[in-house]
């Protein structure tokens, strides 16, 4: 019975659209090319696996010799990518809104949507009287968002993967929240730790737990962002390390592609989460009663 398989195959071919076929062909070509390239370049020998997933987070001077000392004012690779993030903000919010059109164009409406997104978040989560903190929160959001996104460019150094950077951001939020809380509410701000809805016997224990969780906030706030970005980049680097083995290289490239897609998502979500947590903490400072 030689006929049924043939028929089947014809049927399969018919049910697959031209798009799927071209995608398959594209991937086949890419994989073959990768194998060829990796075979050609592995002639140099030294196919031992060398993982340095953390090297991408090193600070290097942008100008001058590699290995030059890094002083506090030295222009480093981190400076460059931060500047790129600032440039993105300028492009989006200064050049994009240049027209001040009543009926916005494409770039202007992106800027307005971002503005509206964060503004609504601040208003919904924190309340109307927190609108005066909006520029501060918006600055944090835009810096983290664009730093995350420019860090997705290959060979970049990502500012938000540096625990120092995120710790500074989180500590700034923590200090702002604490200062605002005490200035606005005075000693009543300590009511945040005194859960008046709980039974009296439990309140001291709850107060200790609340106090600990209050001081852990900047830690989790900063480590969450840095950890997510660092983990994603390190995983990509590890998969890239596997690409040194010819047989695994195609799988490794596909895995990098998949992780990259995930990282695009994470880049936005972490900026969003950092901002919304800032709003939540600020709400505690403005309305400390439980």
């Amino acid at each position: 019975m030689p006929k049924p398989p043939l028929n089947n195959r014809a049927q399969v071919r018919r049910t697959m659209g031209t798009t799927e076929v071209s995608i398959l062909v594209f991937f086949a070509v890419v994989i073959v090319a990768l194998i060829v390239i990796s075979v050609l370049f592995s002639v140099e020998g030294e196919s031992e696996l060398a993982f340095h997933p953390m090297d991408q987070f090193m600070i290097k001077p942008l100008f001058g010799e590699y290995g030059d000392p890094v002083y506090w004012y030295t222009v480093t690779n981190l400076t460059f990518w931060m500047a790129l993030a600032v440039l993105c903000v300028v492009l989006m919010f200064v050049l994009g809104t240049r027209g001040r059109a009543i009926v916005p164009g494409r770039s202007q409406s992106v800027a307005e949507l971002t503005y509206g997104f964060v503004f609504k978040m601040v208003e919904d989560v924190t309340g109307k009287e927190a609108v005066k903190f909006f520029p501060y929160i918006f600055t944090l959001f835009l810096f983290i968002l664009f730093a995350n996104f420019v860090a997705l460019i290959p060979t970049s150094a990502s500012p938000t993967s540096q625990i120092t950077v995120t710790a500074f951001l989180a500590l700034a939020v923590f200090l702002t929240v604490t200062v605002v809380g005490f200035v606005k509410n005075g000693m009543k701000f300590l009511g945040l730790f005194w859960v008046s809805s709980a039974p009296l016997a439990l309140r001291p224990i709850l107060a200790i737990i609340e106090l600990i969780s209050y001081f852990v906030r900047p830690v989790s706030h900063s480590i969450r962002l840095a950890g997510n970005i660092m983990a994603g980049h390190a995983v990509i680097k590890v998969f890239a390390g596997f690409a040194a083995i010819t047989a695994i290289a195609p799988v490794s490239v596909l895995a990098i592609t998949a992780i990259f897609g995930l990282e695009v998502l994470v880049a936005f979500i972490q900026a969003y989460v950092f901002t919304i947590l800032t709003c939540v903490y600020l709400k505690d400072a403005l309305h400390p009663s439980h």
Binding site: W72, V89, V90, V165
Partner: peptide, 16 residues
């Protein structure tokens, strides 16, 4: 170095 340039970037964005 990191903190210095971070402050510069944040202040730049804030001013813009």
């Amino acid at each position: 170095n990191q903190i210095f340039w971070l402050i510069v970037a944040l202040v730049a964005i804030f001013l813009i």
